[in-house]
Design a binder for these strands. Structure first.
Length: 480
RNA sequence: CGGGGCGUGGCGCAGCCCGGUAGCGCGCACGGUUUGGGUCCGUGAGGUCCCCGGUUCGAAUCCGGGCGCCCCGACCA
């Protein structure tokens, strides 16, 4: 990596990102254009994301299920805005079983339609509500340009689909799940996301309202990292999802959907990475501690490996994910660099000197060079590791938060906004513009409205474009 | 679909302008050396130079045509 430092220039950063994704063994280039190959190390990060989310979904009463990969083309057409939004990027199966199908099957780009069709059968009475379902699945959207994890033709995600009796319940669900995402992003992924509502233009095809968590990457670009949609009664009407209320009147349900994808893996890479490669938050790191043994002679090796194995077991018993790098053909120095590149939060070095003194060296990945090194006694290893992992988890979040806050600027005029965007930062502005105004901003600055943040950092004021006084505050940024 | 670039061992590239029988780095295999911050040395395996046609005694190199891929933009989790 020495020849390619992370810089604030997105062009360099993109190169850094691609290289690190492949070198750290998160993914492999796919023989099928734009599709995914996630390698074991990258997949384990995804599994960490899955378990963090699944735990939260269970706590909010959601249950997992699985729906078909194929969707009859006619389903997609039933919700007007939905077709319009997705049709350009659909992959369609026209032949199967050796002959042309009567009705083409779409490879799901998202499952509102099939799940809506199923829900209409499942739901009869208000007693069946709320219906809270999640599915872990892969979906396909034939994107024009792809990047590993951030945008691939096929990606893995979870999509939650719920049905409720009232608008308010659906709205509460939509907001709750956004909060779940934010909680996960902040506390597990150490990414200080900003929650807010999407503009009309950025809204999900067919939704009443779309909420988002927006993350700032190390090159200051924004990444939409999860979304939650209040679908109103649009899909309920299109798929005839109705229930009989207590007063014996038939009503349409109010539905929601929300999703978070393997893009989150890319978000972790881009939000924390540095010149040396990945920096993984301990909660998501496949290996939290890597133990590198150091020895010269065979006698030294057996003494060192005994101590190493003892410590590994100790950590393992405490639920700490520890890995011993037993490679004989690689020097310790090589291993240090290798694991730093792969983002392991903590490295434990044990050599003959340490064995003699009952010591070990711990090196944390979040701090540069010597600053991160600490001598500990082997007896206190578990405690020290536990303490440092917690500190690293916190420090990554704080580091990212500081970075984020330094690069969001409040602006009072359109000129100011252009300058801030031009410089690469995010601009926070009073906004009361039309769709056309929003498009104009995109055209002229390259920035889009990431969201109208829930957390207000700005007083009512004049819209930077229309000049009308408004309470609305929008966050503008260039996005991935 | 618009603009730019590139196709040469597994990967990254040089060679092309000015034709002469294919080279470098990484990786891989084997041997030795080294191991507290990316060891070093030696030996070796591995190539239809994207495809088709033309010019020529001779084409990776020149000419014509085709194909593929990447990057920037439009679309997007």
């Amino acid at each position: 990596m020495s020849e390619q430092a992370v810089t604030a220039q997105s062009e360099d950063f993109s190169r850094w990102y691609n290289e690190i994704v492949y070198r750290a063994d998160l993914a492999a280039p796919s023989p099928v254009r734009g599709c995914v190959i996630i390698k074991p190390y990258g997949y384990e990060i995804w599994e960490g994301i899955k378990s963090g989310l699944d735990r939260r979904f269970k706590a909010t009463g959601h249950q997992n299920a699985y729906f078909p990969l194929f969707i009859p083309e006619s389903y997609i057409r039933r919700e007007a805005q939905h077709v319009e939004g997705f049709s350009p990027e659909l992959a369609v199966v026209t032949h199967a079983g050796g002959k042309e199908l009567e009705e083409p099957l779409v490879v799901r780009p998202t499952s509102e339609t099939v799940i809506g069709e199923a829900f209409s059968d499942w739901i009869q009475s208000y007693r069946d509500l709320p219906l809270l379902i999640n599915q872990w699945a892969n979906v396909v959207r034939w994107e024009l340009r792809t990047r590993p994890f951030l945008r691939t033709a096929e990606f893995l995600w979870q999509e939650g689909h719920t049905a409720h009796a009232t608008h308010d319940e659906a709205e509460a669900e939509t907001r709750q799940m956004l909060d779940v995402y934010a909680d996960f992003a902040i506390n597990d992924a150490a990414i200080p996301v900003i929650t807010g509502e999407k503009s009309r233009l950025e809204r999900f095809a067919g939704a009443l309202r779309t909420y988002t968590i927006e993350a700032m990457m190390r090159d200051r670009r924004a990444l939409q990292s999860g979304t939650s949609h209040n679908l109103g009664q649009n899909f309920a009407k299109a798929f005839d999802i109705r229930y009989l209320a207590e007063n014996n009147v038939t009503e349409h349900c109010w539905t929601t959907s929300w999703g978070l994808s393997t893009r989150m893996v890319g978000a972790v890479v881009m939000a924390h990475g540095d010149d040396k490669g990945l920096r993984l938050p301990p909660k998501l790191a496949p290996y939290q501690v890597v133990i590198v043994p150091i020895y010269k002679s065979d006698a030294q090796r057996s003494a060192v490996m005994d101590a190493v194995e003892r410590l590994r077991k100790l950590l393992d018993c405490q639920g700490i994910r520890a890995h011993v790098d037993r490679r004989e053909s690689q020097s310790p120095g090589f291993k240090f660099n290798d694991w730093e590149m792969r983002g392991v939060p903590l490295r434990m070095e044990i050599g003959p000197r340490d064995v003699r003194n009952n010591k070990a060296v711990l090196a944390r990945r979040d701090l540069p060079g010597r600053q991160g090194k600490e001598f500990i006694s082997q007896d206190g290893a578990v405690e020290a590791v536990r303490r440092l992992l917690a500190e690293i988890q916190t420090s990554l979040l704080e580091d990212a938060r500081r970075f984020r806050d330094e690069h969001i600027q409040d602006v009072a005029s359109y000129d100011e906004m252009r300058a801030v965007i031009e410089a690469g930062d995010w601009a926070r502005a009073n906004w009361d513009g039309s769709d056309e105004d929003e498009l104009r901003v995109k055209d002229e600055t390259g920035a889009t409205i990431r969201c109208f943040p829930f957390e207000r950092h700005k007083e009512p004021g004049a819209c930077v474009l229309s000049g009308r006084v408004t309470e609305n505050v929008a966050l503008f940024a260039k996005a991935y």
